[in-house]
Amino acid sequence: MKSIVSIRNLSREDILYILSLADRIHTANYSGDLLKGKILATLFYEPSTRTRLSFESAMMRLGGRIIGFSDPKISSVAKGETLYDTIKMVESYSDIIAIRHPSDGAAALAADTAKIPVINAGDGANQHPTQTLLDLYTIQKSKGRLDGLKIGMAGDLKYGRTVHSLADAMGHFKSELVFISPPELQMPKEQKNELSARGVRWKETEDLQKAIRELDILYMTRIQKERFADLVEYEKVKGCYILNRQMLSGAKKDLRIMHPLPRVDEISSDVDDTQYQLYFEQAKNGVTVRMALLAMLLGKIR
């Protein structure tokens, strides 16, 4: 693997390999000089503090250094430089690139252009593969496996890039997917057809409270007001997808709740100190997985 652009390009074996590297980084408590002398360029064409800091922390923990920008308004981009030209310049200044861009496919263009490895840190509405890999790592670490689970995804499944990629990746494993959303925000038909064609078991429901009982993992996402043409509809459904402690009374003991963060109000704070909460651990795992990816792509771990 030269670059990480899309979860679609990764096979089951690729995914398991990356997760095993993350596990090694975690258990060996790697720090210090594995990537000493290496430079990561973080090209953030749109703000994403969490993702950027996670990449920078990962690089620094392995002894590497960082250049980059997080505000394209003050960079050469504002002068009208093309992405192609920026990449040609940056590849001679650094050893690896992490890119976040508002246009779909920008990371594919960057990876196709650059001689050095590129990691997609989010391209428009398309992909955010490091998020998916850290989600998978979190599930595997918590459950000990990725097969044989019942994984619920709740909230905005129509526009949510995170859940699309997660569903896509989970298709490599023998788990059942439960899509929980209001009718307006269901998983796109194209994606459901693709999952079915791959033999992935999935079902759909509107009832979060009922679905919770059978799940091993519940992946929550936010329902955004802007997605509704009719605000009356929004008011009707929003309460049903706000998770609180009381809704968890019928849950399996080992249910774990995930969320890509930041959350607004879709998980109430009384869930935070229950045994079900896994989202803070999930955020922490982001650094570990990105450490593994940086070390792998720079050929320093295998």
Binding site: T82, L83, P102
Partner: peptide, 11 residues
């Protein structure tokens, strides 16, 4: 897709 990079840059 109007938001695709191939419709924004010469590729």
């Amino acid at each position: 897709n109007p938001n695709c990079i191939s419709n924004k840059e010469v590729v």
